[in-house]
């Protein structure tokens, strides 16, 4: 039996259905990400699991215990908020000790646990600081320590990194993942950043319009998007409807296809390509963007715009706008997709 099991979770605010019939299972120690654009219901879903939002219908079990109607205090779920939600009137160590105090943990044990967790999140020397004296990254680590110190059965992270600047965000996501692995903690992470989700998760649940539209490992979601929405959200996929696909590649014309930008090549003279490649299709370069190690081209095949990524090998390699080129597509990377998003995977 799975460690966490969610069945038929629904929530509506008046006429507005936030999410409906959500169901999934999580194994102990797994890192799960609820990924989706803002307004897709992922944060509300997380708050419902925590017991902070009442749900309309559901069954929610953790470690075999039914917790659907349990108060948040009794669920043994830790949560880190986007706003940190640190208690401004308490020092770092008092913030972290709060949960233990509420559980009437003996003072000695409390001090030991607090100092151990402070070491784990690398906040030694900041014990007596108040939240307003800390940076955003430090605040978020205090919030993480506060949630971890009570040894929750599940850890919920509600966009904990979105208020931080890029560099701190990168460091902190590595740190969070390392701590989660060390403690073998079942974790549900909410984000709208697909890169963050791919980097941190064991499995991703991609949400759209209050439903989970696809779930799976980061690799499977990225390489096999189930529909046009997933393809568009996970990467800069080119979506070709069935008529364009038939016209360009001679496919049988029953399904639309998605092609990743890195699976399309600009023909270089004298270079041999694998047998999976299509014949070169004439195209005109319309635009190029330098993204660092990658150059992103936009090319036109007739009226069809194609986005493709090429490695930025040298400065002289850049193909000028207006050039005529031949594009080769890797047939193995053609992903049949549905253009509607309503079918859950």
């Amino acid at each position: 039996m799975s460690y966490v099991s969610v069945e038929g979770l629904s929530k509506a605010f008046g006429q507005n259905q936030v999410f409906s019939d959500i169901g999934f299972t999580i194994e102990q120690g797994e890192f799960i990400t609820l990924l989706g654009p803002s307004g897709c219901g992922k944060s509300t879903l997380l708050r419902s699991i925590a017991g902070l939002n009442p749900v309309d219908s559901s069954s929610l079990t953790v470690a075999g215990q039914e917790i659907t109607h349990l108060a948040p205090q009794k669920r043994e779920i830790g949560m880190v908020f986007q706003s940190y939600a640190l208690f401004p009137n308490m020092s770092v160590s008092d913030n972290i000790a709060f949960g233990l105090k509420m559980k009437s943990v003996p003072a000695e044990e409390m001090a030991r646990k607090v100092s151990r967790i402070i070491e784990l999140v690398e906040l030694k020397g900041k014990e007596d600081c108040y939240p307003h004296q800390l940076s955003g990254g430090q605040c978020q680590r205090v919030a993480l320590a506060r949630a971890l110190v009570v040894e929750p059965r599940i850890l919920l992270l509600d966009e904990p990194l979105s208020a931080l600047d890029a560099k701190i965000r990168k460091n902190l996501r590595i740190q969070i993942r390392a701590i989660q692995k060390e403690l073998n903690l079942t974790t549900i992470f909410v984000t709208h950043d697909q890169e963050e989700a791919m980097l941190m998760s064991d499995r991703i649940f991609l949400m759209h319009g209050g439903r989970i539209v696809q779930s799976g490992t980061p690799e499977s979601i990225y390489t096999q998007p189930a529909n046009a929405f997933v393809a568009g959200f996970m990467g800069h996929y080119n979506i070709l409807d069935k008529d364009s696909a038939a016209e360009l590649f001679g496919l049988n014309g029953t399904q639309s296809i998605a092609i990743r930008p890195e699976a399309i090549y600009i023909q270089e003279p004298g270079r041999a390509y694998s047998e999976h490649m299509t014949q070169p299709t004439p195209a005109i370069i319309k635009d190029h963007q330098l993204l660092g190690n990658v150059i992103r081209y936009k090319a036109m095949i007739g009226q069809q715009e194609i986005t493709l990524d090429a490695l930025n090998r040298s400065a002289g390699h850049l193909i000028p706008v207006g050039s005529s080129v031949g594009l080769l597509f890797d047939r193995q990377e053609f992903q049949p997709v549905s253009l509607s998003v309503s079918t859950p995977a």
Binding site: R47, A50, L52, P72, R75, M79, A85, F87, P88, V150
Partner: peptide
Amino acid sequence: INLKDLVDAAHLLGASTPKAFFHIILPN
């Protein structure tokens, strides 16, 4: 002080609403 998140955080850490009110909200 972002009242809602503070009280929610206190609830999840095991505090009842009156305890959250007296320990966290009132001092702030």
